[in-house]
């Protein structure tokens, strides 16, 4: 499973490493989503998860020499930019209404 470094230099990096890195980044994003108590940091964890998935898309686009995966990443980026703009506007609106950014205190819709 783990070729020697000399072999790696000749044959390139196994794409499984990129996928493993992507899985690790995604898990770190989920953990951040669970443990962070500031709504902006929670939002940043979501962005981290989106980036991890993008890395998987690019890796598979490289594996199959297909452009479609990269097109997908392009659209994900555009939607993420729109999502960030709307999400941060919502955060500003929440801060204006509740004067706090702690998710524990924004519990109006909680059961």
């Amino acid at each position: 499973m783990n070729p020697a470094p000399l072999q790696l230099a000749a044959h390139g990096i196994p794409l499984a490493w990129y996928l493993l890195l992507s899985a690790a980044l995604f898990s770190l994003g989920v953990i951040g989503f669970l443990i962070k108590r500031n709504v902006i940091t929670v939002f940043m964890s979501i962005e981290l998860m989106l980036n991890a998935v993008n890395l998987t898309f690019v890796t598979f686009a490289h594996q199959w020499h297909a452009v479609k995966g990269q097109i997908f990443v392009f659209f994900v980026m555009m939607v993420a930019a729109a999502e960030a703009a709307v999400g941060l506007a919502i955060i500003i609106a929440i801060f204006r209404a509740r004067a706090t950014l702690a998710v524990d205190r924004i519990d109006l819709m909680k059961l």
């Binding site: 499984a16 996928l19 899985a23 594996q63």
Partner: peptide, 23 residues
């Protein structure tokens, strides 16, 4: 989270025919 990471890692390491990236 731990279970998801473990499943993902197991599946990734068992994918056959994954290539390698060179310059």
């Amino acid at each position: 989270v731990v279970v998801i990471l473990a499943i993902l890692a197991t599946v990734i390491l068992h994918i056959q025919g994954l290539g390698a990236a060179t310059m």
